[in-house]
Design a protein around this nucleic acid. Sequence first.
DNA 1: GCGCTCTTTGAACGTTGTTCAAAACATATC
DNA 2: GATATGTTTTGAACAACGTTCAAAGAGCGC
Lengths: 208, 208
Amino acid sequence: MARVEKRGTGPRGEHNRDEFLALVTKAAEGLVRREGLRGLGMRRLASTIGYAPNSIYNAVGDLDAVTMRVNARTLARLQATLEAAVASDAAPQDKALALADAYLAFVAADPQVWSLVYEHQIAPDSAFPDWYAEALGQTTDLVARVLAPMIPDPDERRQAVATLWAALHGLASLSTSRKLAVLTPESPRDLARLLIRRFLGAPSRPDA
Amino acid sequence: MARVEKRGTGPRGEHNRDEFLALVTKAAEGLVRREGLRGLGMRRLASTIGYAPNSIYNAVGDLDAVTMRVNARTLARLQATLEAAVASDAAPQDKALALADAYLAFVAADPQVWSLVYEHQIAPDSAFPDWYAEALGQTTDLVARVLAPMIPDPDERRQAVATLWAALHGLASLSTSRKLAVLTPESPRDLARLLIRRFLGAPSRPDA
DNA sequence: GCGCTCTTTGAACGTTGTTCAAAACATATC
DNA sequence: GATATGTTTTGAACAACGTTCAAAGAGCGC
């Protein structure tokens, strides 16, 4: 009956370490995309890639480490999306609107994976991961560059960037958790346009 | 040696149903306050109140039900706090600032418990709980009343309320997760003032 | 006394994250 | 070729978890 009495358990030579890291990260991302944070389990993740849980522990670490890998990838993808959105020679206000649109579109297209970045809270005693602060800084630098022509003062600009970023985050967060729809029928995209128009003191072009 | 061979297992008559609900809810809230969402476990919760886990299942339900009880309480406390904050005859703008201040102070004073409201995500198929939508609506109605003198048009006001609410939520969320401090040294309170001043188009009184 | 209902519980089931020690492979050394 | 070394991979085990089951205790009407 072709029963395998004792399988080999040594290295397979199919993946080197980096390939295995990518394999684990993408599989974990897929699990989160389909079933959210609660769908990401160590044993499940291991079985979807056809390895034993211990292999993940050896190469990546525990579930927190896996989550951070997924989040790092998500932030990099977001960064690339936003970069592409502002790569034009449009007016500063239109760039700001394009940035907000791209952000909210990204979130809407992948809500569960995006939520993981904000749902996952690190232990309060452990320091902030460097790569995380850097990724956040890169993204907000993007916003700062867009806002530079409109707000010349550095201090005021920094505050405006942080505030707008937080506001955008709030819109995205309430939208994905279906709490925004309870308050108003407008799309988060429309509300973001309202926010930017009012906050940046635009000359209120009705914008068709 | 006073060893209890077989303890009684029937009703104790110490609590009626409502008292037991309150006992469970407050104990759960305490666990979350001290150790966050991850510190809220069924067995742990049962042991802190001196009951078996099954008693909680019988009276309240599973962990999701317990979480929703805590969240309902949190939203009610927040509502009361905000009501008190706007109970004055100040100018509309000052009321809006007081509202934002009270919100952020509430969050800062109890970040873990407040976070639970937004961390807990219900299953995507199940409908939105009625009490939750109502609690949210009550709070935003408060904002709408404050903004009424400044934005007479109902549609525009509704959008402005939702946007400001989301923005405030974003500031609070990023603040509790220590992500705001990475971007700027200002307190969320200061950024909220900036937001409201710019969004409501206040005559930009420098505000000492 | 008996029976009914509600409360409370110990024990059990299945699953989880994580760790341990051993097995299997690849590679270097003799 | 044989032997040793180091890395990869794994099955098994451990402690804990959420949840369910059936039974035991307590109060109450009769």
